[in-house]
Amino acid sequence: MLTKKGGYVVQQSNFYVIRFTIILTIVLGLLLSGANQFLKEAQDKSIDLDTKKKILSAVMDISGFTEDQQILDLYAQRVESIVVDINGNKLDKDSKGTQLVAEKVNIQKQYRFKPEERHYPVFMFKGEGSGKVEAYIFPMWGAGLWDWISGFIAVKEDLVTVAGVAFDHKTETPGLGARITDDQVKDRYKGKKIYDGTGNLKPVIMLKGESNQGLSDHQVDGMSGATMTGKGVNTMIENYLKCYEPFIEKVKSGQKVALK
């Protein structure tokens, strides 16, 4: 059954091959599942921290915080979160009865469902000490030129003025579309308005080309060479603002919907 060939032993019986592959599969499988179990906690922490960093970066500059714990503390103090449905009503549990946690809602997965079926997390950024909501932060998901783009748009307590945005992307072109993550581009959204004077929703649109003059309250300067990414960002913002509109309307009309 065992033959010497080419300097090393060659096993040829079918039974040996099957036994070998089964043992190999079991050993490697155990190794991987063990590693997964062992690293799960650290991975969840990293993802949690990353989400919180992105949420905070939509409303404030967090580059001054070097310690991860500072971010987590700040988040715990200042941010309150809920999950709402397409009609702006608070959701406590999903269809299976599991408790919903806004930070754990996977926007990418939700994006695949019909808008009416999605869960919409809302993050409320509260003033220091006062506890009054200073900004509402809405997550978004969409398609860029090459792959997904995502982001958060923060709207001030008047629910009209943009407090800031944060974008992320998978593989937009470096130096062109990837600039959506640059402060220089993100800052263009600050102070813009998502409602027009008559109270109708009017999302902020990124224009084509750079150095556009005479921008209105609903326009931001574009990124030269990245028109398609800009279009993706516009569609994403518009889609998600529409989905969050019922919630915004409810808060505006003074219904203390979901605020504890």
Partner: peptide, 30 residues
């Protein structure tokens, strides 16, 4: 000396894939 010659490429791939997955999991965690 224990790898059956007929499945050696698959065995090599399985070992590489396991190590790569480990690296990727560690990066994700830390």
């Amino acid at each position: 000396n224990y790898i059956p010659n007929s499945v050696r490429i698959i065995v090599q791939l399985a070992v590489i894939a396991t190590l790569v997955t480990l690296v990727s999991e560690v990066l994700k965690a830390y």
